[in-house]
Design a protein around this nucleic acid. Structure first.
Lengths: 257, 257
DNA sequence: CGGTGCCGGTACGCTAGCGTACAGTATAGC
DNA sequence: GCTATACTGTACGCTAGCGTACCGGCACCG
């Protein structure tokens, strides 16, 4: 299954490069591709695809959420924060979903933060248009409802996992989830950044990554982490990874479609 | 504000006792009371109010969710579980909401568990009717969407809080949240049960409760915990409590409404 | 080509909460 | 009233991950 995912990606990436048609890579977002053609056509005029840099904020706590974002090969992150400055990632969003559920759910702001985790392309849609189109009682509504359920599962499972599982497992899970979503084996990120996502010290990340490296599962150099052995990582992580992945597949259809 | 909450309760409880009209105490669930009268009338035939015992399961992992439940003075809990048996509470549901969001979000099952935390009344509605009525594009939909956003906020905030804050604060938060929702000062629960909710050992709960007791914030005897000093508890907890409460009020209107 | 940040490696003492275990006490059922 | 059971109190050694700190190296900028 993981292999399928990967190979699918390897096919579509060169295709996108070669043809580079108007809707750049939007065909790779599973929400957008899940829409019936006429509904997708309705949305097209509002979508702007561009490259987002790593760490670019998508919304800040209690500030207006200005748009929804459909990741193509970028990965975004939703964090929960506390008054005393600590934070932790509660959700990871890639081409299976959309960033901006609060808008769909009737809120113009949220108490958390969202940012780009792995730089890449996303199709952006202004908040106003998104709210209108997502509340029209069409296919998009139903897709977003199911995606919301998947996201809720992800957040819930992340909670138990963060709380009860050890860091090596959690780290492996994080890498797998992101790897699934970017479709590349090389992830640009620093230990510091990873620490912020996992809610641990930078030093702890370094030590734990070293463990995974020693097992030959990953490799890294200054700012770039490379997945070497996906199957090994799956063995090294907890079942939380599977639970969330399977739930998304169940709700949205398997990625191969 | 907490005082308002409490006084409101104290008014409405005797009223319900005195009149005891057909829809027993359903007027105290904020989702049901948020509906326009004709829509509430549509739902009434499907609602059955009864007493639910503490620990009664509402759904089990990946088993069909058979109904939705509108708490009146019961409090329910949604847990996330891992393959190795550990679990943690991710959401608390009282008269501000409804148990059964997965149904609304298009899923017939979910990977977690749900159970009754504090025994009391809830209005139950069979899954089929709930799905039909909640997807009809009426007021109920919009209420549930906003409630979903509130619930998501709750789960997210619980995640950071569990991870970064110390047990005394978390425990105080738990007691406050439940106290808000039951409207009684006496909560029937054991240390063991509390431990399962908070994901900690029973012994740790005992020690931490003793701390709060020494500060005069609570009292307890075999199976019953009593809130003595609400304001003190609010001072003892972290801002996570406020963040979630304010977000619910913002989304659903303040409880006094 | 040399400096200056950013990034990764490592070390040390610290603590919250764990696992386990055992003993005392309230309550319900007989 | 007595017993069985469920609940609470307490103790002890253990460990994952923290806070802090310092050092060396890569990479970009001037």
């Amino acid at each position: 299954m993981a292999a399928q995912r990967k190979s699918k990606r390897l096919e579509s990436a060169p295709a996108a490069d070669a043809a580079a048609p108007a809707p750049t890579g939007e065909q790779r977002n599973r929400i957008l591709t899940g829409l019936p053609p006429e509904e997708y056509a309705r949305l097209r005029p509002y979508l702007t695809t561009r490259f987002f840099e790593r760490s670019e904020p998508l919304w800040e706590p209690n500030q207006p959420i200005t748009g929804a974002y459909f990741p193509i090969d970028a990965v975004a992150s939703v964090l929960a924060v506390t008054g005393d400055g600590s934070a932790i990632e509660v959700g990871t969003i890639g081409n299976e979903g959309v960033v901006g559920l609060p808008l769909f759910l009737g809120a113009a702001t949220a108490p958390g933060r969202s940012l780009v985790q792995i730089g890449g392309e996303m199709a952006a849609m202004p908040a106003e248009a998104f709210c209108r189109e997502a509340g029209a009682g069409r296919a998009l509504d139903r897709l977003l409802q199911r995606y919301t359920q998947g996201f809720l599962t992800q957040v819930s499972q992340t909670t138990v996992c963060n709380y009860h599982h050890l860091l090596p497992q959690r780290l492996a899970r994080w890498v797998l989830m992101v790897h699934d979503r970017v479709g590349r084996g090389e992830l640009e990120l620093t230990h510091e950044f990873l620490g912020q996502m996992l809610g641990v010290r930078r030093a702890t990340v370094t030590e734990t990554l070293a463990q995974l490296k020693r097992q030959g599962l990953i490799r890294y150099r200054r700012g770039v982490l490379t997945v070497l052995d996906r199957t090994g990582l799956e063995r090294a992580t907890c079942e939380c990874y599977r639970i969330v992945r399977d739930e998304f597949d169940r709700l949205l259809g398997t990625p191969v479609g």
